[in-house]
Computed example of a mutant assay.
Amino acid sequence: MREYETMYILDPELDEESINGLVDKFKALIEERGGEVKEIDRWGKRRLAYPISHRKEGYYVVMNFSATPSAAQEMERVFKITTGVLRHIIFRKDK
């Protein structure tokens, strides 16, 4: 298992229930593949450095987790196809 950190920006026009649903979906995706979510830090709505899809704000979430490389690749794939995710990045933490 490797240590990862991901940051993703959600569409700020989503309601609280939809945001919670997406955060839970990404958490469950890691846990279903044998990983462990260590921390989820919700930064909330923040101004973007530049407009993305005609949006000037985004809802930021940072998640620390340990998982296999295949689970991280699956998360990358799901981020790309999920409506409501404006941007995402996954970092592998080196020791």
Rank of each mutant, 00 (worst) to 15 (best):
76 E>H: 08
74 E>I: 04
63 M>H: 06
71 A>N: 07
50 Y>A: 11
57 E>Y: 15
52 I>M: 12
24 D>G: 15
20 N>E: 15
74 E>M: 09
82 T>P: 05
19 I>M: 08
51 P>V: 09
86 L>F: 05
39 E>F: 01
64 N>A: 11
63 M>C: 07
41 D>G: 13
38 K>F: 03
92 R>D: 06
6 T>M: 05
61 V>M: 02
37 V>Q: 02
80 K>C: 10
38 K>M: 13
12 P>L: 05
94 D>L: 13
57 E>K: 11
40 I>L: 11
9 I>C: 05
22 L>M: 11
2 R>T: 10
39 E>Y: 03
38 K>I: 15
57 E>S: 15
77 R>P: 02
53 S>Y: 12
13 E>H: 15
68 T>S: 15
65 F>V: 00
65 F>S: 01
8 Y>P: 00
74 E>G: 01
93 K>D: 02
84 G>N: 10
85 V>K: 06
51 P>Q: 11
85 V>T: 09
57 E>D: 13
46 R>E: 11
79 F>Q: 01
39 E>M: 11
89 I>Y: 06
63 M>V: 08
36 E>F: 13
46 R>P: 08
10 L>N: 01
3 E>N: 09
65 F>I: 01
43 W>Q: 07
72 A>Q: 01
54 H>A: 12
11 D>A: 06
41 D>N: 13
28 A>C: 06
34 G>M: 05
2 R>A: 10
75 M>F: 08
24 D>I: 10
16 E>L: 13
3 E>S: 10
43 W>T: 08
61 V>F: 04
11 D>N: 15
88 H>G: 06
84 G>L: 08
52 I>K: 03
89 I>T: 12
25 K>E: 15
40 I>Q: 06
87 R>G: 12
59 Y>S: 00
72 A>K: 01
42 R>N: 09
9 I>M: 07
67 A>C: 02
28 A>D: 09
21 G>H: 14
84 G>V: 13
20 N>V: 04
41 D>P: 09
33 R>N: 13
6 T>C: 08
91 F>I: 13
34 G>T: 04
1 M>F: 10
77 R>A: 08
56 K>R: 14
31 E>W: 01
90 I>S: 00
60 Y>N: 05
67 A>N: 02
71 A>D: 02
63 M>L: 10
55 R>G: 04
29 L>Y: 06
11 D>F: 06
76 E>M: 07
71 A>S: 12
15 D>V: 11
68 T>M: 00
75 M>A: 04
59 Y>V: 04
56 K>P: 01
